[in-house]
Nucleic acid binder design. Structure first.
Lengths: 219, 219
DNA sequence: TTTGTATTTTCAGGTGGCTGTCAGGAAAGC
DNA sequence: GCTTTCCTGACAGCCACCTGAAAATACAAA
């Protein structure tokens, strides 16, 4: 695989570069948005690691621009702990995953592997889940040719279940997926979104495991 | 499962305790090495979560002592980012895994499940018990393709038998497995849950050993 | 900036499932 | 027979969960 790393912090950049090279991937490392754009013009990348705070602009704008141009290259966002709202904007703008700094390198490797697996071979995979057709890159779902629109939060929740099919996910696990560690939610937000997801796309697939959490069946 | 958490930070301890309880395990939380030793003397634990920086000493010394005594209980170490050398010492001293603070709760859950699985000597999480198929990580049981739903307590009881196949477990042992310290049960709760378990999945496998306890046969 | 719309979050009322307890009866052992 | 131990149906209280609707917030267009 060939990766593009956009990260202005010297230390972190070096570490990541080293790690990824060690795993047998090719990686180009740039430290600004303008350089990133130059790279994207000339080369095809299989995956992009994108820091949001950059000297010449915000990474989200870059991401939006990329997606607008129809590019479906998967993007993993690297964000600092205190930029939660950015993270949500990022997912909205078409990011595939995110990592909160500081993160474990093993965690990074795992995510990279996961994203790579998801996209292995075909550039725009459409997954079938029961009667649902799911376009991972475009955050787009349809059933029987009818498109189903999910909001950012709804998609994030749905995604959590896709990533671990058949597993029971507790409410706090789901919270961790939707919100940053520490940004505690004190209401029944997860329940509400479960309810909304069911209304939009459930045909009995999203079941409650009382006292434990929720599980999505893919039959 | 029954876990021992050794962690002096109030906030983190509470969060972990909550999460693990939610997943249906029993957890005892102590904040010092001396308390930990007391617990280890009196009770059997399936897994131990060990912070290294503790008010009355270093967790590694505790770990070493435990291992020296021949105890094989799996241990997951919780370390801060700047204590990497400790981390290595920890693995040397006989830890099974480590987590760097701050960590994702879902990550913790995953590691716990992994260690528990490894410890049970069962890399493949799907166990066959007679006509039953049991997916340990997913808390999921089926017979002849029909799923059987267990409540949290029922599952916890069932789990106790899975972990010690063919062993006679006394009522007080089962109570210890289901409930944390202090929350003593004064009624025949265990009997009631045995009855409920039998109704849901027994085909003569769960037998009473009068005066001693119960045993589950795996044929 | 202001306005209008979509989304997110919170709140509150209602429902049903789970849990622990008890009591009466059955079974085992003496 | 009697005593002890175990089984199990029933039940009340609790708590997890569901969901409509309102309030707060974010976002886009004018």
């Amino acid at each position: 695989m060939r990766l593009l790393l956009v990260e202005d912090a010297e230390g972190l950049g070096e570490v990541i570069q080293e790690q990824i090279t060690e795993e047998g991937h090719a990686i180009d490392w740039v430290q600004s948005i303008s350089h990133a754009q130059a790279c994207l013009h000339t080369t095809h990348y299989d995956l992009m690691l994108l820091d949001l705070m950059l000297p010449d602009g915000n990474g989200i704008d870059l991401l939006k621009k990329i997606r607008k141009s129809g590019e479906t290259t998967p993007v993993i966002i690297l964000t600092a702990r205190d930029q939660i709202s950015d993270r949500i904007k990022g997912l909205n703008a078409g990011a595939d995953d995110y990592l909160v700094k500081p993160f474990d390198l093993s965690e990074l490797s795992a995510r990279i592997a996961a994203v790579a697996r998801r996209y292995a071979g075909n550039p725009n995979p459409i997954i079938k889940i029961g009667t649902l057709e799911v376009d991972l890159t475009r955050h787009f779902i349809s059933r029987d040719g009818v498109s189903i629109n999910l909001t950012a939060r709804e998609w994030a929740l749905f995604e959590a279940f896709i990533q671990r099919p058949g597993t029971v996910l507790s409410k706090s696990q789901l919270e961790d997926h939707l919100y940053a560690f520490g940004s505690e939610i004190e209401s029944n937000t997860i329940e509400v979104y479960i309810s909304r997801l069911r209304k939009k796309l459930d045909r009995g697939q999203l079941e409650t495991v009382r006292g434990l959490g929720y599980r999505m069946k893919f039959s």
